[in-house]
């Protein structure tokens, strides 16, 4: 059991490194920073809805398209950003930027993710009454939710499939219970993450104890 977990851990550790290599082989740091800034800017400009929307978009961009991160890593980053204070997209940019180019990367990524809302809001604050009462804008924002929902569904289907692939009943059960708690019972995300952290620690203790017995 422990052996299996260690192997799994090692595999997970290597996978993103390989994927990342494929993504930025032969690129200078300057190019990386520019790509980071550009992609954060575009993602942030198109994120309608809450923080988890941008996580889905980031997963598609950085994991599926650019291959900079592994999927597990992206989920870890999401869990960390959710447990830190502050806006989720900004937190995620800090960590992703740090991962790709160190502290400078964090600055660049955060700049990319806060500039679009700052520019848009500065313009809108001048004539916000016209904006708020505009019929066409209201319709466009309403229908756009269908597209946003489709993007999140697509990402969640892939992620949930991978959780099921671990074939650990504990993980699958945790996913289902966490969903019911978050969606139907309105339990806060922070609490869910803390409880799962506790379960993870217990799981670790059980594994260590089993290893000792054997």
């Amino acid at each position: 059991m422990e052996e299996e977990i260690r192997l799994a851990g090692a595999a997970q550790g290597e996978e993103p490194a390989q994927a990342a290599k494929a993504g930025y082989a032969g690129k200078s740091k300057r190019e990386m920073l520019w790509t980071l800034f550009k992609s954060m800017f575009v993602l942030s400009a198109c994120t309608f809805g809450g923080g988890f929307v941008i996580v889905s978009l980031m997963k598609k961009k950085y994991v599926d398209q650019l291959g900079w991160l592994g999927e597990d890593e992206m989920l870890d980053v999401t869990a960390i950003t959710q447990s830190c204070p502050g806006p989720l997209p900004v937190n995620a940019s800090v960590i992703l930027g740090y991962r790709m180019c160190g502290i400078l990367g964090s600055f660049v990524a955060v700049l990319g993710s806060i500039l679009p809302p700052m520019i848009i809001l500065s313009i809108i604050s001048v004539f916000y009454n016209e904006f708020r009462t505009n019929h066409y804008i209201a319709i466009a924002l309403k229908v756009m939710r269908a597209g946003v929902a489709a993007v999140i569904c697509d990402v969640v289907i892939n992620l949930a499939k991978n959780v099921c692939k671990t074939r650990r009943v504990l993980y699958i059960a945790m996913m289902v219970v966490a969903f019911v708690c978050a969606y139907f019972l309105n339990v806060s995300a922070m609490l869910i993450i803390l409880v799962c952290l506790g379960i993870g620690l217990c799981d670790l203790c059980v594994n260590l104890w089993k290893k000792k017995e054997a």
Binding site: L75, A79, I152, I193, C196, L204
Partner: peptide, 26 residues
């Protein structure tokens, strides 16, 4: 490996949270 063990338990929760946000918007 220990850290992986703990983080592994967080991943299903994160998937569920993203799913819950998606369900709300849908």
């Amino acid at each position: 490996s220990g850290v992986q063990n703990v983080l592994g338990a967080l991943r299903p929760a994160t998937v569920a949270l993203i799913g819950s946000a998606g369900a709300s918007i849908l």
